[in-house]
């Protein structure tokens, strides 16, 4: 277990990167995991042409896995084109966490990505030409 709750994960939990909210976000989205009450909100600021993430922040509360993996995800996607975000998958998040998770805990780890993708999807639907 120490291999899961190891230094890197605990560090992201205790010192979350990109933690907070953005004042002029292009989109914000929030969801919770009904099973355990983990809750994550993501605020995203995009470039002028809407193709790239220029600033991102998350807030919320919940277990270490959900909050630390959201923090890792923020670092991963900040500055990236949104096409990269759309390509992110379950395994990419599990790779970031870097330690085996039981089935029940995978949901916790994936909440941040789920929120980001759902928010981005809604933004793209709302901004179709």
């Amino acid at each position: 277990m120490e291999d899961l709750y190891r230094e890197n994960l605990l560090d992201h939990y205790e010192n979350p990167r990109h933690h907070g909210t953005l004042e002029h976000a292009d989109f914000s989205h929030e969801e919770s995991n009904p099973l355990c009450g983990d809750r994550i909100r993501v605020d995203v600021k995009l470039s002028e042409d809407g193709s790239q993430i220029v600033d991102i922040a998350f807030s919320g509360d919940g277990c270490i896995i959900s909050q630390a993996s959201a923090s890792m995800l923020m670092e991963e996607v900040d500055g990236k084109p949104i096409s990269d975000v759309q390509k992110l998958e379950r395994q990419d998040i599990l790779d970031l966490v870097g330690a085996p998770l039981t089935t029940a805990r995978v949901k916790c780890a994936l909440l941040g990505l789920k929120v980001l993708k759902a928010g981005l999807y809604q933004y793209l639907v709302d901004h179709q030409d």
Partner: peptide, 12 residues
């Protein structure tokens, strides 16, 4: 300590 983290650590 979130109960889920506790549950996972106890499982170990």
């Amino acid at each position: 300590i979130h109960p889920h983290d506790l549950g996972t650590l106890l499982d170990r």
